[in-house]
Design a protein around this nucleic acid. Structure first.
Lengths: 119, 119
DNA sequence: TTAACATATGAACAATCATTCATATATTAA
DNA sequence: TTAATATATGAATGATTGTTCATATGTTAA
């Protein structure tokens, strides 16, 4: 039997307290939602490939499309999502728009993910 | 004009070399796919809430369902996904099944995500 | 101005996915 | 064994999402 010899899933005191304690330490609904939205952005192999490309250096949209073997439109749509998530930024240079990583959280997050799948 | 005064998106040499160089440094298709699949798992607020609950302590399915205000079935389905991604593990204790975090990558990844949305 | 190039974006469609419902499996107690 | 409890899972469904296509916007050169 479990610790304390209590069958905790029959609405005993122990059960109630554990649930209450968990609820006290939970982030807000908004934070949980924002966090899930952020990771959703990482959850697409096209966007992951874009981010890996940006690890090397900043790059214009057409070079990205060529590198990924995708249409300019598809890449542009994904860049928009990455930008809304503040993972990339852009600047215009003449006719071109150059994209680059917004900060280093991206590298850390993808790095940890890479470690996880490599085990 | 850009560095080198070359309009790179009209299939010049510079363009070709940049694309070729990016392709050389890209992870394999399998790795990119696996990485996206991993982050997809983080991209749902129910699963994020489950992981936060597991940050506190290991917990059985019924307590999780009670904490999250969800049906046992819905929680169980999500636990299955977390387990397949090797983010959580489980052990049986009598009638209960106790879930717990598989390793610390989860904490790091969510921690970095939290930093990002908190800025 | 006009033409050419680079990028952005709205709408539509196919594919993916989280939840619900019903039910199956597993464990314990009687 | 049977009953009760805890968990797992297959099928169906509504919602979300990535890509395509067509087109709009923005920039430069002539």
């Amino acid at each position: 039997m479990a610790i304390g010899d209590v069958e905790i899933c029959e609405h005993t005191e122990v059960h109630q307290e554990r649930v209450a304690d968990l609820l006290r330490h939970m982030p807000s609904e908004d934070q949980l939602y924002d966090l899930a939205e952020l990771f959703k952005v990482f959850g697409d192999s096209t966007r992951i490939r874009i981010l890996f490309a940006l690890f090397e250096s900043e790059i214009c949209v057409c070079d990205l499309a060529e590198t990924l073997g995708m249409t300019q439109s598809a890449v542009s749509h994904q860049l928009r999502i990455l930008k809304q998530a503040r993972l990339v930024k852009s600047r215009r240079e003449g006719k071109l728009v150059i994209y680059y990583l917004a900060d280093d959280h991206v590298r850390t997050i993808i790095g940890q993910g890479f470690e996880h799948i490599s085990e």
